[in-house]
């Protein structure tokens, strides 16, 4: 199970979480929603980190999506939950590598996948990239485009 696994799986009844389960919601440094006040912003206590969504919130949104039959949307939230652990630069570098012709061979994608799995606790993203590598190879995407 991922970090901070919630005790109870949320469903559509808990939605919107910010209204119905506010105690569940915190920013990425653990500040609860209720503490993100104007006073706290003005005093400098609130940083952009505190306004970042957490993997837990994304997993909860995934649970809610599943409860109404939207499993693919849930899949995206689950990948996103892992992606919260990646820096902006890493996200964009991997995005770039996934574009056609950027990777010269399978290897660079497989290296990324291994790093995601081993160092970033991101097994879903690792699977996703390995799968892309398989299809890219099959469709000849590792050719230079510019």
């Amino acid at each position: 199970m991922p970090h901070n696994a919630p005790n109870k799986r949320l469903t559509a009844k808990d939605y919107p979480i910010a209204e119905n389960r506010p105690e569940e919601v915190t920013g990425s440094r653990g500040k609860p929603l209720a503490s993100l006040t104007m006073e706290a912003v003005l005093s400098g206590e609130v940083s952009m980190e505190d306004l970042r969504i957490t993997p837990r919130a994304l997993e909860q949104q995934a649970q809610i999506s599943k409860s109404v039959g939207r499993s693919t949307l849930a899949g995206n939230f689950e990948r996103a939950a892992e992606m919260t652990r990646l820096s902006q630069e890493e996200i964009m570098a991997i995005y770039e590598l996934l574009r056609p012709g950027r990777a010269a061979s399978n290897d660079s994608l497989l290296d990324v996948a291994q790093r995601l799995r081993d160092e970033q606790d991101a097994p879903l993203l690792a699977d996703f990239i390995e799968e892309a590598a398989r299809f890219y190879e099959k469709r000849g995407l590792f050719r230079k485009r510019y």
Partner: peptide
Amino acid sequence: RVSGDYLQ
């Protein structure tokens, strides 16, 4: 964006 409710 903290709760992600509007991502649904």
